[in-house]
Design a protein around this nucleic acid. Structure first.
Lengths: 227, 227
DNA sequence: GCAAGGATTATTGTATCCAATCTGACCGAG
DNA sequence: CTCGGTCAGATTGGATACAATAATCCTTGC
């Protein structure tokens, strides 16, 4: 009754063994989108993904539906799913939403973060400073800084939503940074200022600081791919 | 073995004929949740829904997955899906998120709404005033007032997200209003004040007004069902 | 040579089937 | 009487099979 002698087929694609097939598909597709290997507008064929992962189409469909309701893909009835392509206005919209939400999150962070948390944030800041040469490192370090702060926000949904928005904008940020890396230069001072505002402990200051910080991004300079 | 000559089964449940099976399932389950007929914590069995609608389990599964990623349900691996049950903190979190997002939306509404829009809002306000006797009417009229304003916000995602949050909190609001309808009394003045602040045309005033309005809700008095 | 229309193919949507897992009841030992 | 284990039923996860729809290409008439 055991898995049989050779569980090859189902094991082969097991890049993530314990995961369910649907979770595999979700992680795989989202990873491809975030990395930019599936650019906006790409038609995603369920069967292809299924074969690539060695699973059937069904879990892939569910993953696509979930990605769709999270805004990463768009399903057109009977015509398949395409990777959502964001224009300038839409990216701007995402940043505005993230600005107010992450501002809200900083209200509670300002009052709940402790000395150790502030220390972690400082460390993340240093990592960010050293990562200014490489796009991947930079994005990782940048996310880490924000995640350290969000770790002190006791609102799971709010944090989840913020991170979702950040992921949705990531491909465009990545593309832009690859072309002109000037955006990576001034960030350390920028982020240190935010950190100081949070350190003040004043919710209003912390909120306004983070909100302004996120809105300061020049979205116009983003979006090299004008869908 | 086929469904037989008479396609009755699939036709019978066709409350929404043109819809795909998955859309039917989605609308059906969400409707049941919003109406409170599927209270938080209810275990939803895919097979039951499928039978009730005369479709198979697969589209139901997809609908559940989508509802799950939208926060209405929670899927536990191999153990099925339950209707998400929100506690006091979580409802409060939702209202805070909606407050900042709808505040943001009002910034653009303040500058883009026209005379006709203001008139529509006034009408909605009167409807709201007359609907204070019945919970269903009240909720409908209340949603309409906010929707009129959001109709002038040129940010589709923002509007979608706000409405999603409102729907997520609706069952609890409905439950509460059924018990104590005092919350329905003062709303007309409340909403008129918001409308006046929007009429001012000042984004800052409009944002602060709406944000304060939504936060003014006494979430503590909400949540009769302490999961 | 080109456009319109129809056949063919590719892809999606749905249903059915099988395996894996969980739930709960029953039963026996301590 | 309680605790633990086994077994049957229910339910989910996944795969295959079939139907429906859209996309493509090829023919055919002009």
């Amino acid at each position: 009754m055991r898995p049989a002698p050779i569980p090859a087929a189902s094991e082969r694609a097991a890049d993530a063994p314990g995961q369910s097939a649907q979770a595999q598909a979700y992680a795989y597709i989202l990873g491809e989108i975030r990395a930019g290997r599936l650019p906006g507008g790409t038609h995603v064929v369920a069967e292809r993904i299924a074969q690539a992962l060695g699973i059937s189409r069904m879990p892939v469909r569910e993953a696509i539906r979930q990605l769709s309701s999270e805004g990463f893909m768009t399903i057109r009835s009977n015509r398949g799913a395409v990777v959502t392509s964001l224009g300038r206005d839409e990216i701007n919209e995402l940043y505005e939403m993230r600005a107010v939400l992450e501002g809200l999150a900083m209200r509670s962070v300002a009052t709940s973060i402790d000395a150790q948390g502030l220390e972690e944030a400082e460390i993340a800041l240093h990592r960010l400073d050293r990562a200014r040469q490489d796009v991947n490192w930079f994005i990782t370090a940048h996310d880490q800084f924000h995640d350290v702060l969000l770790g002190f926000c006791p609102r799971p949904r709010l944090v989840t939503e913020i991170e979702r928005i950040r992921r949705a904008a990531e491909p465009y940020l990545r593309l832009t940074l690859k072309v002109s890396s000037t955006a990576m230069q001034n960030t350390t001072d920028e982020h240190r200022e935010v950190l100081e505002q949070i350190r003040s402990g004043d919710p209003d200051v912390a909120e306004a600081g983070m909100r302004a910080h996120i809105l300061r991004i020049d979205v116009g300079a983003l979006v090299p791919a004008v869908s």
